[in-house]
Design a protein around this nucleic acid. Structure first.
Lengths: 189, 189
DNA sequence: AGTTTTGTTGACTGTTTAGTCAGTCTAGTT
DNA sequence: AACTAGACTGACTAAACAGTCAACAAAACT
């Protein structure tokens, strides 16, 4: 097993356990065992438990971001670009339920403030620029950018929560995602 | 000090610490100390730590509910009733930031599934009936009730998050709350 | 006043935990 | 083959933890 395998296995195991039992409800020993590595190996890669939690969040954030950029072709209108990002996010969330659930849990937890704000903003910059332009051009309501961002985020979490709590066909899910974007757009435009 | 005083002091202390350090990040001993009671007293009232966490959530839920019912006069139109509930919720949240933050944290955590679903539904029943009627009368979009509910909830959490992360005058806050209700209404009607 | 019940205490305990460490293994380099 | 550097191990430890309990205090009841 290579280094990446073990790091990845540790993050995988941690994710599953964190979602089920919470951050502090999951001992490091349990994580190591579930990952199939020795106790000490966990601390070899992540010197403290907190660093493991943060690393996991950052890794997921990156994976989601990659997925979004890979799956959004260059659209022309602002609405189309936003819709692409919104759909990508929720498609990814559907294929990675635990991952998305963890991100939500993390976002509501006191851990969030441990994330360096520059690292946070780096990911958000492109979207913020987009929204800013949208406001300037009058396509989006003249509201503070981070307010619009917050609205999009909570809306997205809400839709995902509903999607995971309700059984429905893939087709219906995609229809709902598309419909809810229209609702969101109606709200901010 | 009476019994109620001590129970209340324990919940107060637990709330503050949970919001800052998380559920498992807060030892029971610290809670007891902060509440000014002996370690054993905590376990006299709440046999396990989990029961304390759940009791806190239920207590807050009740307090918010009371506030809403006390502060919503009997309106006539569906929109006015919903607006009253929405405003009440966010006004309460502004006066009880920690309380609301905890409820959000709790809602995203694995603890949520420990709450008996009947106790949950009891609080929601009136609102659900209201929404159902709204859909029937065509005032609200023909979407599943619990979807609309999820949308309202996440929207509310989002607005509160923005309100607490941004400095602004009381007047501006109230304006924003009112405005965001219109956005929400626009979305679901 | 005496008795019982209920509230309250904090020292204590068995367990669990994050994190350490002394040393083994593996793969690459000279 | 000898050396080195980093990966990896798991037994270990010191601290922290949730929960107990025997004793005491204060009400409440008879």
């Amino acid at each position: 097993m290579t280094t990446m395998d073990k790091k990845k296995k540790l993050l995988d195991a941690a994710l599953k356990l964190f979602v089920e039992y919470g951050f502090h409800g999951t001992p490091t020993g349990t994580i190591a065992k579930a990952a199939g590595v020795a106790n000490g190996t966990l601390f070899h890669y992540y010197p403290t438990k907190d660093e493991l939690v943060l690393a996991l969040y950052i890794d997921l954030k990156k994976r989601l971001n990659n997925y979004i950029t890979e799956n959004t072709s260059t659209e022309t209108t602002l609405k189309a670009v936003l819709k692409g990002q919104y759909l990508s996010t929720l498609y990814w969330a559907l294929e990675n339920k635990n991952e998305f659930k963890f991100m939500e849990q993390f976002s509501a937890s006191p851990y969030l403030k441990l994330i360096a704000s520059e690292a946070m903003e780096k990911h958000l910059k492109p979207l913020f620029a987009l929204l800013k332009q949208g406001v300037k051009d009058g396509h989006i309501k003249a509201l503070p950018i981070d307010f619009i961002f917050t609205m999009i985020t909570s809306h997205t979490f809400g839709v995902h929560q509903y999607l995971t709590s309700t059984k429905m066909s893939k087709a219906k899910q995609h229809q709902l995602i598309s419909d809810t974007f229209e609702l969101l757009w109606k709200m901010i435009s």
